[in-house]
């Protein structure tokens, strides 16, 4: 298939499907809907005029829940009258205590540092987009997000907690802690975010926002120049 372009920027109207890698031409869609790949039906992009506001609200809520999930007990158990509970932090420190530094380090990154970092970066990014400020920083955040997103495993950790609970059946009395539920809400938010906000769309949005701002500046400058010219 031959594609005609005015210049390289026209390539923004072509999207390569992440799943089947066929080239798809962008089409106009209505607010709140999504475009699917014509080959494999994978969602390609969405159109949301309030993407920045939605993204900001979601990422702030997400950050609150992941921080809460780190503070309270996940599960409490009772065996023969003795009680014991676990928080994410106590789990990691007990692994360090028994010499499993590498596993502890993995867990620390995969379920604490990366999720907190990703949601903080999203907040910063949406704030910058909202304020139309610091384009270079916004660009670097987008690059960083693409690199660390695959290493976030809160959802898998949540399933692992369920597996652990089943393994403990019969051996102990189990109580589900507050952090389990906050983690559960966090995972729901995270799944909703990865499904509804693609990094590709954020690049398009970033370009739109900052080029509008640049245009405005360009229109503004001649006037201020003439003013300067008069006064000098």
């Amino acid at each position: 298939m031959k594609i005609e372009l005015e210049d390289e920027n026209d390539l923004d109207h072509y999207i390569i499907c992440h799943k089947c890698h066929t080239v798809q031409e962008e089409i106009a869609i209505s607010d709140g809907s999504k475009a699917l790949c014509s080959m494999c039906k994978m969602p390609l992009y969405r159109y949301d005029t309030r993407l920045v506001e939605h993204g900001l609200a979601l990422s702030i809520t997400g950050l609150i829940f992941i921080v809460l999930a780190n503070l309270f007990p996940l599960i409490k158990i009772e065996i023969l009258g003795t009680e014991s509970y676990i928080t994410i932090i106590s789990m990691i420190s007990s692994l360090i205590g028994s010499g499993y530094y590498l596993v502890a380090l993995f867990l620390l990154y995969l379920i604490v540092i990366f999720p907190v970092m990703i949601f903080s970066l999203y907040i910063l990014l949406f704030a910058l987009l909202k304020l139309k400020r610091a384009e270079e920083l916004a660009k670097n955040i987008l690059i960083l997000l693409a690199q660390i997103e695959p290493w976030q495993m809160s959802d898998i950790f949540l399933v692992s907690i369920l597996v652990s609970i089943v393994k403990l059946f019969g051996m102990a009395t189990i109580h589900i802690g507050i952090s389990f539920w906050t983690l559960f809400v966090f995972v729901l938010i995270d799944i909703y975010m990865t499904r509804s906000i693609h990094l590709g769309e954020l690049w398009v949005l970033k370009k739109e926002i900052y080029s509008k701002k640049a245009e405005k500046l360009k229109n503004d400058t001649p006037i201020s120049n003439t003013k300067k010219g008069v006064s000098s």
Binding site: L74, I75, I77, I79, L80, T82, S84, Y85, I86, S90, M91, I92, S94, L95, S98, Y100, V103, A104, F106, L107, L110, I111, M153, I156, F157, V159, S160, I161, V163, S164, K167, L168, A172
Partner: peptide
């Protein structure tokens, strides 16, 4: 990673006398 997480959780949780 599921099994590694499960071991982490159980090891952190079950250290009673």
């Amino acid at each position: 990673m599921v099994d590694v997480f499960v071991v982490g959780i159980l090891a952190g949780l079950v250290h009673l006398s």
